[in-house]
Amino acid sequence: MFDQWEALSTELRTAIVAALALLAVSLFLAVWVGYNWVKRKKMTRASGRKDNGELLSAEIAYFHEKGKRDKQEDSFYISPVDEYDKNGLVVCVSDGMGGMRFGDEISHDIVNEIKGMWPLSFFGNEKTADDIRKISNMICSKYDFQGGATLAMIHIYNNYMNIYSVGDSDIILIRDGQSTILNPRQNYVSYLVKKLVREGKETQDAYINSKSRALVDFMGNKDPRVIYTTEAMKLTDGDVIIVSSDGLTDAIPWNTLAKYNHSGARKIAYTIKQTIKSKKIPKQDNYTAIMVRMSRGVV
């Protein structure tokens, strides 16, 4: 065999070696391309999206301001932005219930627990909701209904978003010049509206009821209903998501927030914050908001 190889001309031997090397490189490339194609297909199938091959970038800004309250009872969490590609982005706001003891401690405990859950599985939304319920039960045991808080949380991954909510903090989407509060408020109004609709009546009475804003579910309650999306929402270029305590929507009507949709998250946050400050509302609640602006481009 070796003799036969030696008998070949140098040019022929070089050509054979080059051909074999080319074949090896081609095989490697084919395997590599195939592997990545399968991986991408799996990711696409898992997220349920048709792949256009582009991951939207997320620009984040926030404000965390004390209103006229004695204490800052809002807390918030933003997951590590350098893990956006791998694990997505989680942001949450927790608003301690005013007028009750331990509101500040409880909201702080909640965001710390959420932080401890990072990284969250985007597709394990049922488990995440269950974990949030466990946090509430833990708070219930620790504080024995002497305080509570809300929780509004989003998880963005691969251009899709899941929401989680307990209480009446807001997750607002600004898209195409319209703002939408995505999570229903778990307050007494919802119950009254439902009752009046069943009776075939109009619903003005639901809003003038003195207890209408009372929470029917909150973090710190035993086994609260955790509102969460079972199938994620698709995000598009230009979407702005605001996760906020109700100190924001009490000062600025939610349906006017679309006009603050500027080109960058920082500018949106700055303009909204200044607007609230300039209103000088005598009983201004604490106000915390995290703005996430989705856009095409590099993270």
């Binding site: 929401i163 989407l173 898209r175 319209q178 939408t180 509060i181 995505l182 999570n183 229903p184 509102i227 969460y228 999306t229 079972t230 199938e231 994620a232 929402m233």
Partner: peptide
């Protein structure tokens, strides 16, 4: 009703 509202309400 906006489309995102209809979608989220459906999914929660």
């Amino acid at each position: 009703l906006t489309k995102p509202a209809i979608y989220t309400d459906a999914m929660i």
